[in-house]
Design a protein around this nucleic acid. Sequence first.
DNA 1: CTTGTCTATGCAACGAGTTGCATAGAAAGA
DNA 2: TCTTTCTATGCAACTCGTTGCATAGACAAG
Lengths: 186, 186
Amino acid sequence: MALEHAILVSLLEKPGSGYELARRFERSIGYFWTATHQQIYRVLKRMEGDGWVTVREVPQQGRPDKKEYSVPALGRAALSQWLHEPIEPESVRHDLAVKIRGAAFDDPAALIREVERHYQVHTDRLAHYLAGERRDFTGPEAPALPDDVGRELQHVVLRGGIAYERMTLAWLDDVLATLHRLRAER
Amino acid sequence: MALEHAILVSLLEKPGSGYELARRFERSIGYFWTATHQQIYRVLKRMEGDGWVTVREVPQQGRPDKKEYSVPALGRAALSQWLHEPIEPESVRHDLAVKIRGAAFDDPAALIREVERHYQVHTDRLAHYLAGERRDFTGPEAPALPDDVGRELQHVVLRGGIAYERMTLAWLDDVLATLHRLRAER
DNA sequence: CTTGTCTATGCAACGAGTTGCATAGAAAGA
DNA sequence: TCTTTCTATGCAACTCGTTGCATAGACAAG
């Protein structure tokens, strides 16, 4: 399971509360991992029990107090160990592909709208990633810090997200062209 | 949940047993969906109870008897209904990306072997998909059938798998170059 | 003044998915 | 002959992940 390790990485990059983690999982970490706040709170509890994270109560004004988590040596060691274990390459699960093959037993043209909707979502995601890249890495406003390892690695992961969205958009174009052709031939 | 619908699509393309479905999920359907035989047997039981599939006992020689499943009108209707419902675009979960960002807190160069291993797996998958494409769609040996809708749709899904593997290989190249550069700079 | 949104945490129930194990006959290779 | 592999199905136990609900104060918009 990698959720624990994704949390360790995120907390090492910057300590924070379960709530903050949940929001990070909607943004930058969401490029390659998703999790709901329920999952995060539950896993944080377990990790606390295992000594992988430590908690500090932080009182706040104008909003509820929060529990700020950070990573002690034991957590770092757990991450380190996992990094040295081989993992299985991902297997994809793509509902839309199931629908496309299923459309052979229904009306393929009825899928066009759905595919267009997905196209829009991926267009938005790509724009969001590119904005993040300009802001943090390539733009004139990007902090001109000395190249550090963490920054380089974050950038290469972001480039992966960008490549994924571009590939997906090109494929959805192919899908749309195919669906239009099938409709015309009928 | 799309496993039920993936099974309906597969059984509509060709009726078969739970065992045969499990093997299809390792091959062609595995481009976009994975499932173990346990999951498939359990879901088939439930689908049988719901009247989405019907069973026929098929005695065999030299091997155990099997239960061949096929899809009656009720199952077709269930698939049809699902096809007309909108679905959420996928969210990715990529363990390797977690590792790459995590490597900032360990030794990035130690990841090189792991990334190379993934590169090999994706190279093999791409070769496998391309062989399937030549065999079934583009090669001289491909059955010269009249273009039918199901075939076209299967092909466009396969092209998606091919595009995914090519994109992944290009990204892994980028990752390797980054890791080598970081090692050289150190 | 009420409704909605944001921060912040959490429980309970359910469904999805994995892992280990079991059975059992046939065929193939060491 | 023994071990392994393939076909074929299934149970039990477990972990992972989602959905619905609950609390509660602060703030903004209508």
